[in-house]
Simulated assay, not measured.
Amino acid sequence: MTINSLGSGQSDSYTFTDCQLDTLYVYHTDATWFADTYADHLDFRITLDRCNPVGYFDDSRGLALVVTGGYGSASALSTTRLLGTAIPILFGAPTCRDGTGDAGFFGDVFGALDVSGITLGFDAHAGNNTLAKRLGNRTAAPITLSAYNEGYYQQDYTFNTDYTAMTDAQIINLVNTAWVGFVLSTVNPSLHRYPRILGSESALFNSGAGIAKWSAVAYAAGGWQIRPMATGDPATAFAGIALERIPGGKTGRILREGVMHKTQLAGLSAATIAAGTVLYHSDTTAGQFATTGPRVALSGRAADWAYFKASAGQ
């Protein structure tokens, strides 16, 4: 099943209720895209309500700027915030995600404006979706961008030259060369989203260490709280797969049954998966999966896709 977003700027909905879907996965694409404004190219809210398990794969190409903190002891804290006159030009309305200060769970801020540089429409024309075009020549009209955290550690950058002939990578490198403790990069914000799978997902509190997106979780003592699945846990402790990063002390979404692409399985992005392939919980890295081991986790459904059903809580 293919869903194609075109860049209408509308937030439409697809809801499938009590359906037996004759497909392996739902495929989202922006193959024909017309807008050069916003970076989240998923124009639809997708909900599967009591349907048979199917996968989801997003192949859209939007990119937004993201500033991530936590690099260096001076800024290894849980929040990242932005200041400056460059924000409406480069970020639009930013979204903040707080972390814990632990590696992999630093706070970040990502923008709403597209900087992917993809061509637009049926005639594949260029749009205003690069950093060079959004900045232009700033020699006579400088703008500023500052990143800071809750410890009041702050780094500043002034855009004050002609950027029209620069690549996005060159502009990003200028900022990162000047900053210490924060990193500017790009992210596809559509990949932060996953369809609602009613009947097969839960929102649970993480009482343990940070849980990486696409990793295995187990119930914590007492139930209805989760933690990363440990290398010593039995296979029967498997409670599901995290659909988002879940810092310790935060609540996040987990999927208890589903069909997952190998890039949605921590530790298996480079694995070879075919129908019938048996996949396991990693014995060396908490929360990850492996192609060998004694603790069975998933079974191959087709090339690059695997099915799982959590053991715990069923």
Rank of each mutant, 00 (worst) to 15 (best):
residue 1 M to S: 15
residue 6 L to N: 13
residue 16 F to R: 04
residue 16 F to A: 13
residue 16 F to E: 09
residue 17 T to L: 09
residue 20 Q to D: 12
residue 23 T to L: 14
residue 23 T to K: 13
residue 24 L to A: 14
residue 24 L to S: 14
residue 29 T to S: 13
residue 30 D to V: 01
residue 35 A to N: 14
residue 37 T to L: 15
residue 38 Y to V: 11
residue 39 A to W: 01
residue 40 D to Y: 01
residue 41 H to M: 05
residue 42 L to E: 07
residue 42 L to N: 15
residue 46 I to M: 03
residue 48 L to A: 04
residue 49 D to R: 11
residue 52 N to G: 05
residue 56 Y to Q: 02
residue 57 F to K: 14
residue 58 D to Q: 04
residue 62 G to I: 01
residue 62 G to C: 02
residue 65 L to N: 10
residue 65 L to E: 02
residue 66 V to L: 06
residue 66 V to H: 01
residue 69 G to R: 03
residue 75 S to V: 11
residue 75 S to Y: 13
residue 76 A to K: 15
residue 81 R to W: 08
residue 86 A to H: 02
residue 87 I to S: 02
residue 91 F to V: 06
residue 91 F to N: 10
residue 92 G to V: 00
residue 93 A to D: 14
residue 94 P to I: 04
residue 101 G to Q: 05
residue 101 G to I: 00
residue 101 G to N: 02
residue 101 G to T: 01
residue 102 D to H: 09
residue 102 D to W: 04
residue 104 G to A: 09
residue 106 F to H: 13
residue 109 V to F: 01
residue 112 A to W: 10
residue 113 L to M: 02
residue 114 D to R: 02
residue 114 D to S: 09
residue 118 I to H: 05
residue 120 L to D: 06
residue 121 G to E: 02
residue 121 G to H: 03
residue 121 G to M: 10
residue 123 D to T: 14
residue 124 A to V: 07
residue 128 N to E: 11
residue 130 T to V: 08
residue 132 A to M: 05
residue 133 K to M: 12
residue 134 R to L: 06
residue 135 L to C: 06
residue 136 G to K: 01
residue 139 T to R: 07
residue 139 T to N: 12
residue 142 P to I: 10
residue 143 I to Q: 08
residue 146 S to P: 03
residue 146 S to V: 01
residue 148 Y to P: 00
residue 149 N to V: 12
residue 151 G to T: 12
residue 152 Y to E: 15
residue 153 Y to C: 00
residue 154 Q to T: 12
residue 154 Q to W: 00
residue 156 D to S: 13
residue 159 F to H: 03
residue 160 N to D: 15
residue 161 T to W: 09
residue 161 T to C: 02
residue 163 Y to D: 03
residue 167 T to D: 08
residue 170 Q to M: 11
residue 171 I to A: 07
residue 172 I to K: 08
residue 172 I to S: 07
residue 174 L to P: 00
residue 175 V to N: 06
residue 178 A to Y: 06
residue 179 W to Y: 08
residue 187 V to D: 09
residue 189 P to F: 04
residue 190 S to P: 01
residue 198 L to F: 08
residue 207 S to F: 11
residue 208 G to L: 08
residue 211 I to H: 01
residue 213 K to P: 01
residue 215 S to N: 12
residue 216 A to S: 13
residue 220 A to R: 05
residue 220 A to L: 06
residue 220 A to H: 10
residue 220 A to D: 11
residue 220 A to K: 08
residue 221 A to W: 05
residue 230 A to F: 02
residue 230 A to E: 12
residue 231 T to D: 11
residue 235 A to C: 12
residue 239 A to L: 07
residue 241 I to D: 02
residue 243 L to Y: 02
residue 245 R to N: 12
residue 246 I to T: 00
residue 247 P to V: 07
residue 248 G to N: 00
residue 251 T to F: 04
residue 251 T to R: 13
residue 259 V to I: 12
residue 263 T to R: 10
residue 264 Q to G: 10
residue 264 Q to P: 09
residue 266 A to T: 09
residue 269 S to L: 04
residue 270 A to H: 14
residue 272 T to I: 10
residue 274 A to P: 06
residue 275 A to Q: 13
residue 277 T to I: 10
residue 277 T to S: 15
residue 278 V to I: 15
residue 281 H to R: 11
residue 283 D to E: 15
residue 285 T to L: 14
residue 288 Q to V: 05
residue 292 T to M: 08
residue 294 P to E: 11
residue 294 P to V: 02
residue 295 R to S: 11
residue 298 L to D: 00
residue 299 S to L: 07
residue 310 A to S: 13
residue 313 G to L: 05
